[in-house]
Nucleic acid binder design. Structure first.
Lengths: 229, 229
DNA sequence: CTTTATTTATACTGCTTGGTAGCAATTATG
DNA sequence: CATAATTGCTACCAAGCAGTATAAATAAAG
């Protein structure tokens, strides 16, 4: 389930330090960093689970530690406090969505084709990372103001790039949108809503939800005269 | 700002008691009940404000009391505990939306006309009662299971009635919706999203948001061949 | 003007929990 | 194997807060 090999996200390596030491030590240091990163990820996963199920304030770090079969000070040696944990969770969720959008936008195609790919990929990412994203949507008020700000900036970037795509489709005549920047917010809202609403093992499968989302968004931008082909 | 005259919602009057007493006493008892109801409303308002801004768990009843220039035991003489306050807030928000929907549905007209009225009125109610509704969306996990259940039932009623309207429009050929019950959920989600996203004094006015919501929903149900007239 | 009932405040408790100081165990190093 | 360094744990504290027992103040009743 959790392969250690699976790439730590951030190796906070000290370059000066690395260059000073022989190869063996460097390799050892890298492995250690990977292990550290892995531990951080595991803590984050379990924390996000509890935050998702019980809410941020109602979750005790003792319960998170217990789930990991460690103790609270263990967590504190990897994160400076509870708030940092929340920030990482929220940031991760939004960053993943933004990355998914950017990757989808890099696929060549008409605005219509691109929009479909965007909605499909982002919706999938949102479902896969539901915990992270819904924790963000619910607990934004628990973030430190500067942390909340940073994440809001990411969301704004998301909306802006989406708006640019709609603008392109509008100019090409594929879409009928009065104000692309405003429509982008509704589309982005529709996608976010999935995180709050989707329930694993619920009435509808992930695939059905993704397909529905595509249909809904297509209709939201479709010209009154019918879909562009 | 807060007129006492403005009708208490629930007069928990004991009828047997009332019938036993002369008119004067009955009138006095009624006034007392109105005052009690008013106090309850004021507590609820301030509590919802704090829950909205800081979150449920992060809000202390001492701070709510201070805002009202009373003390914590005062609150406890009108609500049995913090959880009851949360329940009333969440319930109020969803009940208002449902009532708005039902009233809108009682207006005669084609499915297209009715849908427009529904979206307009519900969106307005959601904006006006944003605090109550967004507290519900964010703090559902903090509710007691049975309370959460009761409110989910209200939401389900909402979605079902909305689906019936879409079904009617589908049969009349006004709407193009593959599965009304599923589309209803997206529409209901779009409306709920307003509570999380709208910001008083933000970039867009309440009226603009309502108009946008109408447009979006109309497009979501509009047949590929263009809007029905 | 008493007396009784109601309403609100004072003052407290018990518990939870974020966070930490200092110790034990484990691992790496020469 | 001895020593150094890292990593994790035990045991604790201080603060915050939901909830309450009880007294004071106020209003109603006679």
């Amino acid at each position: 389930m959790h392969k250690l090999a699976e790439a730590p996200e951030r190796l906070e390596t000290d370059f000066a330090d690395i260059m000073d030491k022989p190869k063996k030590k460097r390799a050892a240091a890298q492995l250690k960093d990977e292990i550290t990163a892995y531990k951080r990820r595991r803590i984050l996963e379990e924390a996000s689970h509890f935050f998702f199920v019980n809410g941020y304030e109602a979750t005790t770090l003792d319960s998170v530690a217990e789930q990991l079969n460690v103790t609270k000070p263990f967590i504190y040696s990897y994160y400076k406090n509870k708030g940092e944990l929340l920030y990482e969770i929220c940031q991760t969720g939004i960053q993943l969505s933004l990355t998914a959008l950017e990757e989808a936008l890099s696929v060549e195609g008409t605005a219509t084709e691109q929009l479909k790919i965007v909605v499909e990929r982002v919706a999938r990412i949102i479902i896969e990372n539901q915990r992270y994203i819904s924790v963000y949507l619910r607990e934004e008020k628990s973030l430190l103001p500067e942390d909340a700000r940073r994440i809001r900036d990411l969301r704004h970037t998301f909306d802006t790039k989406l708006a640019a795509l709609l603008e392109r489709g509008k100019r090409s005549g594929e879409f009928d949108v009065a104000a692309p920047s405003r429509t982008a917010i509704w589309v982005s809202g529709l996608l976010s809503w999935i995180a709050l609403w989707y329930h694993d093992g619920g009435r509808w499968s992930a695939t059905e939800v993704v397909m529905d989302a595509i249909t809904m968004v297509q209709k939201m931008v479709q010209p009154a005269g019918g879909a562009h082909v």
